[in-house]
Structure formats: structure tokens, C-alpha cells
Design a binder for these strands. Structure first.
Lengths: 131, 131
DNA sequence: GTTTTTGTTGACTGATTAGTCAACAAAACT
DNA sequence: AGTTTTGTTGACTAATCAGTCAACAAAAAC
């Protein structure tokens, strides 16, 4: 019998979700995830397999809830815009979830979330990771 | 008096728009743009200054029209989700456009567009640049 | 035809990226 | 305490990235 994983899986999922929500999928580097979670790359790869595996774990966790938080809505947006066209795994996951929802509600929520997080509704100043 | 630019500016804008619309901002590499337009990197940088300059030229051209095409809606999504929070230039541009629109119409269109292009509404198979 | 001006080329640069792996060590078992 | 099992570490790898630039050459002017 060997050693147990030393980090809290649920906490790391939440931390990774925050990074993907903020920077998107392609805009997030592994080093960003390492910095946010404190877990080194070897351990992340051991548990999640790949960067896309990390994203899928985050999205799955979010979609598993009866209703979606702001964070999960952001992950849904990232999934739809960046991954859904090119990843069968992500497309299957998000389509399964979508088919369980009210289409009009989702459409409206997506539009609302996009506007909310874009920063154009207020006088927000861009924060600059990629300025 | 020297040489004139040998490519058609409007054609290149359209071609670059199609690449950004398809792969997003961070997901698009300069080589993708070179491949799609046939214009080499030195010439692109001479005219547009930077990768973000290329994107801004595309978005500006799209927003200059009275109504927006499918292609322009995709660029708007990319702008809102990937760049608006970190680029003052993009945020200013898209906010200016947004303030001239009917808020409800934009919200609905954003939701509809992201669902349409995500490929989850039909039996589409992912096409694989980033699978 | 020659000279001047300005665009094109694509190899190159420094930086960043996702993913790997052998050495180490903590946990579990005996 | 010793042995076995399995997680952690972080340097490393190969590839990719945005952006640069000197040599070349096409276009324009004379």
C-alpha cells in the first residue's frame, strides 16, 4: 500500500476552474495552474493526464451540480467557444448537459454571462495579463 | 516613390477574420494567418504592427458595417471572451459598438451565436486542429 | 537604363509552451 | 526499523510562439 495524494482534489478543481474561467483554455498556461494550486506539474499530470483532462475535470464538476454558479457558466463559455468544435470529449459532455436544460434559459444566460464578464458594462479597466 | 503593397487589404482582412473566428485569438498562431492569407509574417507586421493589431483591424472592419455578419458575431464573441478584459483598445472598440446597439438584441444574438458555432446543436464531429 | 524608395522574404531570436521522467521521499505495510 | 508502494519534485525536452531584421527586389521616379 502506498502513499495517498497529498492535495485536496475538490480544492484543486476549484482553483483550476478559477484559472480557466479567468484566462480561457488556450490563454491558460500550466504554470498558471501550478501557481494557483501549489501542486507541481508532475502531480497534476499524474492525476489529470493532460491539460485538457484538467479542464474536463473542472467542467464535469461544475455541470454535476443541479444549478450552475457564475464560475461554471464561465467554464461553459470557454468550452463552447474554444473546445467544443475540436474536442469530442468536451462536445459530448456539454451537449449532454445542454440537452437537459431549457434552451431559452441557457441562451439568455450565455448572453448575460458573456456581457457580465467582458467588462464592457461598467467602467472597468483591463487588468493586464495579456495587455 | 516606392512600391505599393502587393496584397488586397480587404481580402486579407476577410481571410484573417475567418482564422480568428475559427480558432479564437490565443488559439490562432501567426503561421495560421500566413497560411490562410499567403502574406508572409514580415509584411503582416509591417501593416498591422502586432498580432493584436491584426485582430483589431478585423474587428473594426466588421463593426463598421450597419449590421453584423455571422463572421463578425464570432469576432465579437472572441473579443468579449478573450480580449476585452485585458486589452484597453479592444474594450474601447467593443464598448463603443455595444453602446450603439439594442442591449436585449445583442444579448440574445451572443447566446445564439455561441451555441450555433459550438457544434453542439447538431451531430457535428469535431474537426480537430486542437483535438 | 539608372537611381531611389519602399515592400517582401523567411531565417532567426528569445521566450513560452505542454508534457516527461529519474531521483527522491512520504506513506503504508510487515 | 526495514521494505515496499506510490506520490512529488522540478529540471528537462522538443515544439511552438510572437516579433525582428538584413538582404533582396519590385515599383516608381528621373
Amino acid at each position: 500500500m502506498g502513499r495517498k495524494t497529498s492535495f485536496d482534489h475538490d480544492v484543486v478543481i476549484l482553483q483550476m476552474s478559477q484559472v480557466f474561467a479567468r484566462f480561457g483554455y488556450a490563454g491558460t498556461a500550466l504554470d498558471d495552474i501550478v501557481a494557483a494550486t501549489g501542486v507541481l506539474r508532475g502531480s497534476l499530470y499524474r492525476v489529470f493526464g493532460s491539460k485538457q483532462g484538467m479542464f474536463i475535470a473542472c467542467l464535469s464538476a461544475g455541470l454535476a451540480n443541479q444549478s450552475q454558479s457564475e464560475l461554471t457558466w464561465r467554464l461553459i463559455l470557454v468550452a463552447l467557444l474554444e473546445l467544443s468544435q475540436t474536442s469530442l470529449a468536451v462536445q459530448t459532455l456539454i451537449r449532454g448537459w445542454y440537452n437537459e436544460q431549457d434552451a431559452t434559459t441557457v441562451l439568455t444566460q450565455l448572453g448575460q454571462q458573456i456581457l457580465n464578464q467582458s467588462g464592457i458594462l461598467k467602467g472597468e479597466i483591463p487588468d493586464g495579463k495579456h495587455s
